[in-house]
Design a protein around this nucleic acid. Structure first.
Lengths: 348, 348
DNA sequence: TTGTACGCGTTATCAA
DNA sequence: TTGATAACGCGTACAA
């Protein structure tokens, strides 16, 4: 009903016969303004349906109050939960979160990153794509002095903060759990070893084997991607070995699911004959008829901490860049796919 | 290495001893500029690592080249696929997509909507939250003359375009499929009837029953939410009826999953004793040991069409608002949970 | 306590 | 073909 065209502080100032500066000050709770005018302006602004033009404000102040998040996919439970964590922490501080997907393609990652920088974002949170080898685009971004926080999948560079999972520990814990369940020949479905996280999970697996005096069989380690099919193929390949595994620790839930499907089709009992552990604690792992044991990465916490690191960075002295590396501990949710000792199905 | 501070067209103009206006024109492929200066400017801009300040440009032009998408949750396969569709269609036109979540809360929906409008977005795509009854915030948004396109969950208002699924048809198809499989007593797990989509699915269900001469039992319709538990409870409730159902058409996949879990725990065979059909074609439906028949909402297409509707709107005459209502046809993926006649498990 | 004037980076209009 | 200048909407030193 009220105004069709955008109303500015100038319109308000004309109506009230005061200067635009006064209106601006009144609206921004500037202390040196009379209570009377402040109220009058507030009232009039409301009446005229005034909306602050954040573009102009941002252009002036150099701050947009927007932060960008770049993730491979938004529909992975892990990533969407991290985003949720960032949102929850940043919203009270007036920040708005812009979400971008790289779809695991560096090309998109570069585009999204540049788009965000061009839009004059106040900070960037990112988890690099699997195909990111060259890091020039990230180095260039750093030159712009936009705070950058890596989470989960980081790239090692000085001056950049990161919040990641202790993937080594996670790999170690998962493997040790399988050993405790009595497994002796534990196979590992690894992810792309180019990514630190998968390398660390693998190292943790290997270390646990060693610690417990189990021999490491290189042919029991199969590289998979996050697809169900690759888990199926991995099992097919593993069962060609003369030494068949009695457990599988998968670095991803989807591959674990595929492995389970393939094992079942071969009439191998789970967990009696083979125990399976996945990674990420995707919701479906607990929905399954045979719920899958999985490693939780505490994504909500990861997002919140990443946001806190960012806030410290912008609140602090701008000229000095602080580098903060946070490492979170994983949590194993033991379910029927590996819980031989569990009598009743777990609640989680 | 190059520049620490932001370089502007003014810096370039000083370096080349030409006016900033000329630089701007050269950069914007303005026809009345000599080829020589154009190249010179382009080269210098690159050298100086010039980046256009989109904020300033947006302030000037009134266009940000950003569009906003508001969905209840980003980690639902359906919504993330729609977003993907919008992205694919809009990226080639230079638009960038800002994603927001309402978490099914009107309060958040209002906040996100206002935040987007304040950021001077060029258009908004939205799927309203379940709790949205009052539509004042949307009406207010319309007054700002920002193109708005509803998808999936719309609110009926004149002058607003929408792209939705033919939910009546979907409900009808699902039910008819069950009838074809020989089911006579089909129960329905409905969603929140306040939302048009769920109401239409229910109407479709009812219409199919009628068409095929089956009696409608009100006690066979249970309202559920999108949680697994509500599906379990619904079955518990249904099996208290004297007339036990021999099929279940659920308006959501999660409720369908819960229903299946409960049926199994009661040793009821699927699909022999009871057939189950879900809705949304969430990925997990085909991962299950017993894959679930589900209705696909062609989300990718829905996103693309919504984007096209938006493009038509901004390309066309601004003063006249066009209203376009697109209705898409659903597609049923028949799987083991209802496919009695299927001998081999379906591929999809 | 309030007003004046300027700048943020860009583009568009008018002259030259 | 190019230059000078105003304008987009806001915030803020400086002056009053």
């Amino acid at each position: 009903m009220s105004g069709k065209e955008k109303v500015t502080i100038y319109d308000i100032s004309k109506k009230l016969n005061i200067s635009a500066a006064t209106v601006s000050r009144a609206l921004n709770q500037n202390p040196k303004i009379s209570e009377k005018t402040r109220e009058l302006v507030a009232k009039t602004a409301l009446e005229m349906n005034y909306k602050q033009n954040r573009l102009a404000q941002a252009l002036k102040s150099g701050k947009t109050n927007n932060v960008g998040v770049i993730v491979p996919y938004i529909n992975r439970s892990f990533f969407s939960s991290v985003i949720r964590g960032i949102e929850e922490e940043l919203t009270p501080h007036g920040y708005h979160v812009i979400i971008c997907q790289s779809h695991e393609e560096v090309k998109n990652e570069i585009n999204q990153l540049n788009a965000l920088l061009n839009t004059q974002i106040d900070g960037i949170f990112m988890s690099v794509s699997k195909t990111t080898q060259n890091t020039d685009h990230i180095k260039k971004a750093l030159e712009e002095h936009t705070p950058l926080v890596f989470f989960d999948r980081k790239i090692e560079m000085s001056g950049v903060s990161s919040v990641v999972l202790d993937d080594f520990k996670a790999g170690y814990m998962a493997t040790e759990h399988l050993i405790m369940e009595g497994c002796k020949k534990i196979a590992h479905l690894s992810g792309d070893i180019n990514l630190e996280i998968y390398k660390n999970r693998f190292e943790g697996y290997r270390s646990a084997l060693e610690k417990h005096g189990l021999t490491y069989h290189p042919e029991h380690v199969i590289q998979t991607n996050s697809k169900i099919e690759s888990g199926q193929q991995a099992v097919a390949q593993l069962w060609e070995c003369e030494e068949k595994p009695d457990a599988i620790f998968s670095a991803g839930d989807y591959a674990a699911l595929g492995a389970i499907q393939e094992l079942k089709s071969r009439n191998i009992r789970i967990p009696e004959d083979v125990c399976v552990v996945g990674f990420s604690n995707e919701p479906f792992t607990k929905y399954m008829e045979l719920p899958i044991t999985s490693m939780d990465q505490t994504p909500l916490l990861m997002g919140k901490i990443a946001a806190q690191v960012f806030l410290e960075q912008v609140k602090g002295n701008k000229t000095l860049t602080i580098e903060k590396k946070v490492v979170l501990s994983p949590e194993l949710f033991v379910r029927s796919s590996s819980g031989r000792s569990i009598l009743q199905p777990a609640e989680n």
